[in-house]
Computed example of a mutant assay.
Amino acid sequence: MAVRNVADPSGAANVAQARPAPPVTAAYLERAALHYLERYSASTEMLRRTLRRRVEKRARARGEAAEAFWPLVEETVARAVRSGLVDDDRFAAARLATLRRRGSSARGASAKLAAKGVSREAIAAAMEAEREAAPEGEADGLEEAAARAYARRRRLGPWRRPDIRAAHRDRDLAALARAGFPYDLARRTVDAEDIPDEP
């Protein structure tokens, strides 16, 4: 049976709450950045946003203005970039490959990368590198392969059960259009006679 400490009826939890949050320092931000980058691949902007959220939380607990620590955040981000821990070009290329395998259109992948804070230049460079890396004569098929991957993952068109496929044709076309695929490609994907052989 647990014995209650009569001398301290509030318990240790309140003692921990009463302890003030440690100050925001360069060392704290360095540790926070390394901890985040050990777990996630990130763009420069993603790291910046994460560190700012951490600073805002700690500054709020201490009754301080978070904006006073933005220069420290920028210094931490700059060090991560200089050391090669963060590289927007590398991040964009790797993330683009993942998105394309999952069935993102070029337009959809661009939007997702932009939401991660990747610059237009880095996105364009990653797209160009993707085209150059494609086997000869297959660069134009990248979007078609992505449309098939998207339809397969969402079970659209030829991946639907045959008895409900026709009834869902318009809905499937709309889904591909919302994902950023051109109408002609969406139609070819949805109306394919058989499920294409996958690599």
Rank of each mutant, 00 (worst) to 15 (best):
R48M: 01
A7D: 01
R19W: 04
S10R: 13
G141K: 14
E56F: 00
E143Y: 07
A94N: 12
V6N: 15
R102F: 09
P199D: 14
D163Y: 10
R31F: 10
T44F: 03
E74P: 02
D163H: 12
D87R: 03
A139L: 06
R161T: 08
A16F: 06
A146H: 12
D163A: 07
E130Q: 11
A33C: 14
W159N: 03
Y36F: 15
E136R: 09
R171C: 03
G137K: 14
S10K: 12
L72I: 09
R62P: 03
D87N: 10
E74Y: 08
A68G: 05
R152E: 06
V3S: 07
R39W: 08
A65G: 02
K57V: 02
R101T: 12
R19H: 04
P71S: 13
D194V: 09
Y150R: 15
E67P: 00
G103L: 01
R52I: 11
A133T: 11
R153Q: 12
S104Q: 11
S43A: 08
R169F: 00
P23N: 09
N5E: 15
T76V: 07
D184A: 13
A61I: 06
A125Q: 13
D89E: 05
L99I: 09
A18V: 06
A93R: 15
F181K: 06
R187H: 11
Y40A: 02
E121F: 02
R188K: 14
N5M: 08
L176Q: 05
A68C: 02
A139S: 07
E38I: 05
K112M: 14
V6H: 14
A12G: 01
L47W: 04
D184M: 02
V77D: 01
A126R: 07
T76Q: 06
E45T: 12
A133K: 15
R171K: 14
V190R: 08
E198C: 01
Y150T: 05
F69L: 00
Y183T: 05
A186M: 05
A93Q: 07
A133W: 09
A129W: 07
S41E: 08
V86L: 04
Y36T: 08
R54F: 02
E30N: 12
E198R: 15
P196L: 05
L156G: 02
A2W: 04
S41L: 10
A106D: 00
R79H: 13
L51I: 06
R131Y: 10
L176F: 03
Q17V: 04
R120C: 00
R95C: 02
G84E: 06
D140Y: 03
S41H: 13
D87P: 00
T76C: 10
E67L: 06
R100I: 04
A111Y: 13
L34P: 01
F181H: 07
L142F: 00
A133N: 14
V77M: 02
R165N: 04
R188N: 08
R49L: 03
V73R: 13
R155K: 15
P158E: 10
F181M: 12
V118T: 10
A2R: 12
A97W: 03
Q17F: 05
L51W: 01
T76G: 03
T25F: 08
P162K: 10
A66P: 07
A78C: 05
L37Y: 12
D172S: 13
H35Y: 08
L99H: 03
P22A: 12
L37Q: 12
L113T: 07
R101S: 02
G103M: 00
G117L: 08
R188H: 11
A18D: 00
A186W: 04
P196C: 11
L29R: 03
P71A: 11
L29A: 00
G63H: 13
